[in-house]
């Protein structure tokens, strides 16, 4: 996708589902994270480090906010207010875990601010980052309301993979250098491999065929990944996927800043949806017996 193309077709790329958007999409990769099942174990985080050549930055740089974890598990404590200013003495409902990785927004706030179109929307519905076009302005990172973009302030590769640790690096993607922004890609190398294979075999991509590293390893199967294009453009993309079925079941639609649900008790929601970023990660609410 050239810069010219982006400038020419700007309005088209910014159209939501309700305006007849998505018509050029081949796929619309999205996912569902069930917080009823997530235990915060962080297996997904390590799987991501292994798959995506994420740099280990060490304690000092972590303290400076330079950690490169494309996927992080946020942990929040309850604020139970018992009324009259009394608060609960203990966390009787455990913790709240929130796995956060790039939400692959369809109206991504990071995209329009890139001065060199290094971040753009692909026909797969992915919010992509072109490393060798990135000039490190960090506008995208400033604009991401989820703080899910990570900047290479240093040449981390100089210290992250002392030999022979470097032999583990995944040759399917690059090691990023100083001055470049990076973030979760939904394991685009895996998506590409599956698409190529399907093309060679002259068939469509199958549901469940693409498994990002985090989804694959999740011990409680809390994450479901798949094509959700079919939801809005019937007959397109991978049809009748598990992921799309969950979006439908929870009555969450793309292209809306506020969901109107027939059954308001359904658990599906998107984080900071009201900002109209149109994320493609559907969370299912944590459940607790009261």
């Amino acid at each position: 996708m050239s810069l010219e193309n982006i400038l020419t077709n700007w309005s088209k790329y910014r159209k939501g589902a309700e305006e007849g958007g998505f018509h050029d999409y081949e796929h619309m990769w999205g996912r569902v994270i069930d917080l009823n099942k997530c235990t915060g174990c962080s297996a997904c985080v390590v799987a991501c480090y292994a798959e995506n050549n994420l740099a280990v930055v060490g304690k000092d740089r972590f303290a400076d906010g330079h950690a490169m974890h494309w996927l992080r598990i946020e942990r929040y404590w309850d604020e139970p207010d018992l009324g009259e200013g009394r608060v609960a003495e203990f966390q009787h409902h455990g913790a709240s875990f929130l796995p956060m990785h790039c939400q692959q927004c369809n109206a991504a706030t990071c995209e329009p601010v890139c001065p060199v179109a290094a971040t753009y929307h692909t026909p797969d519905g992915l919010n992509a980052q072109v490393y060798n076009r990135c000039i490190g302005s960090r506008y995208c990172s400033n604009n991401c309301p989820y703080r899910l973009r990570y900047f290479n302030f240093f040449s981390y590769y100089e210290s992250s993979w002392p030999a022979p640790l470097h032999m583990q690096l995944n040759p399917d993607l690059t090691v990023r250098d100083k001055g470049v922004m990076e973030k979760c890609t939904f394991c685009v190398q895996r998506i590409r491999a599956v698409k190529d294979k399907a093309k060679m075999q002259d068939r469509k991509v199958l549901d469940g065929e693409v498994q990002p590293a985090c989804v694959q390893t999740c011990p409680t199967s809390a994450m479901t990944f798949g094509d959700i294009l079919d939801m809005h453009s019937p007959g397109k993309g991978v049809e009748n996927t598990q992921a799309a079925a969950l979006w439908r079941k929870h009555q969450v639609e793309l292209g809306k800043a506020k969901q109107v649900k027939q059954d308001p008790e359904l658990r599906g929601y998107r984080v900071l949806e009201g900002l109209n970023t149109d994320p493609k990660v559907l969370f299912l609410e944590r459940v607790r017996e009261v």
């Binding site: 917080l35 009823n36 946020e74 929040y76 404590w77 309850d78 604020e79 409902h93 709240s96 875990f97 929130l98 008790e265 658990r267 929601y269 984080v271 900071l272 969370f283 609410e285 944590r286 459940v287 607790r288 017996e289 009261v290």
Partner: peptide
């Protein structure tokens, strides 16, 4: 932040609703 500060980051429903 240790808490959600009123944002709907992790929402919780009761088991009855589930």
């Amino acid at each position: 932040s240790e808490v959600q500060l009123g944002r709907k980051l992790v929402a919780t429903v009761t088991a009855d609703v589930f």
